[in-house]
Nucleic acid binder design. Structure first.
Lengths: 198, 198
DNA sequence: TTACTCATTGAGTATGAACTCAACGAGGTG
DNA sequence: CACCTCGTTGAGTTCATACTCAATGAGTAA
């Protein structure tokens, strides 16, 4: 790659990286294109020579982040025991929490495409977790009072709700970390019941 | 009241009523002041002679709606058994679902004041439900595996999550109605355990 | 009836933010 | 070196939308 192309790629990456950081800090909607350009140290117009529209920039970043997240999650969890899968999912969410907190908070504002993208990626992860859960149940001969998919949906609903309410519930640090024990307790309760099956 | 004042009050009420309906249908953010004025059949400027700013109009409507909701809820539920309280809360939410679905979906976009208002009103209802729950538990000599406040928080988290995700999960009708049985099942499970305490 | 009040009107203004484009100059090419 | 290419620049344009204000005329009071 020649110097010019290298420079172009560097600029593009700088814009993406800075924008991702700003999104996680200020939210996607309130981060303006001029903010991104200034923070990246490029002219406002440069941004539009790399990304036709603001929406395309947002989509690029979300795509990259969600892909990374999913890949990381699946890499960690190949051949893991179910409780480790849940644990590492929560740990991974803690790591990326500022970004995903914003994503779920602003889910209803971004356009339909982006919304589908986000929901799709998370549903893949949910399905994977459900699959691991069902394996775990049958391997240990456990039959739960509620349907397995209801239990997993339930846990995911709570996780997404906590991410969504992180700011409102005023968690300076990680809300997932703060709620982790509760989540695990609820999950175990749903698996083993009120301590009478185990 | 003279004719002029009556007219003024009528105009004000028309604006509020129409705006509330539009908010429930289109969302708060995407409903523009000009839309409200047109739908109410008044000039754009009239709106601002009744409400200094758009935010004040939104606040007025949210205030009224939340107050009504809380009042209705408390009226229905004085001297009720706990399961009736939960039932009538869910029924009341079904009735006002389009509006509250929008409210929770856009919670992160409205300004801090409005957000506090909404969270405050719902926390009062949550506290009331918790109070009824604790009475119910002690009256029946039930001790739950999880703390009562964790259980109630849990149920409220799910309710708010469902309202928030109503559109995304593509419920044309009521999502609260659709999830009601699940919610009651989870609640009973948390009270009575996996069928072994009762 | 006459003079005043004030709710209503809607074209006009202000503002903010996405997006454009002609000019520039470093980098590549013959 | 001379010329061309193209990534970058930032002042300017466009557009949406909240908000203004002078004019209007129905309602009120003497």
């Amino acid at each position: 790659m020649n110097k010019r192309d290298a420079q172009k790629t560097a600029t593009r990456n700088k814009i993406i990286d800075i924008a991702e950081k700003l999104f996680a800090i200020q939210g996607i909607v309130s981060t303006k294109t001029i903010d991104i350009a200034k923070a990246a140290g490029v002219a406002h117009g440069t941004l539009f020579s790399h990304f036709e529209t603001r929406d395309i920039l947002v989509e690029t970043i979300l795509n990259r982040k969600l892909e990374d997240f999913q890949k990381q999650f699946l890499e960690i969890n190949s051949n893991q025991e179910f409780h480790c899968v849940i644990n590492s999912l929560l740990d991974l969410l803690v790591e990326h929490e500022p970004f995903f907190s914003v994503v779920f908070r602003e889910l209803s504002i971004v356009n339909q495409n982006l919304r589908n993208l986000i929901v799709y990626r998370f549903s893949i992860i949910e399905l994977y977790v459900l699959h691991m859960f069902e394996n775990f149940l049958s391997a240990n001969g456990i039959s739960t009072a509620m349907k397995p998919e209801v239990i997993i949906q339930h846990i995911f609903s709570l996780i997404i709700h906590y991410l969504n309410f992180r700011e409102i519930l005023n968690y300076k640090e990680s809300i997932i970390l703060g709620k982790k024990d509760d989540l695990i307790e609820v999950l175990n309760f749903m698996i083993y019941g009120g301590g009478c099956n185990e």
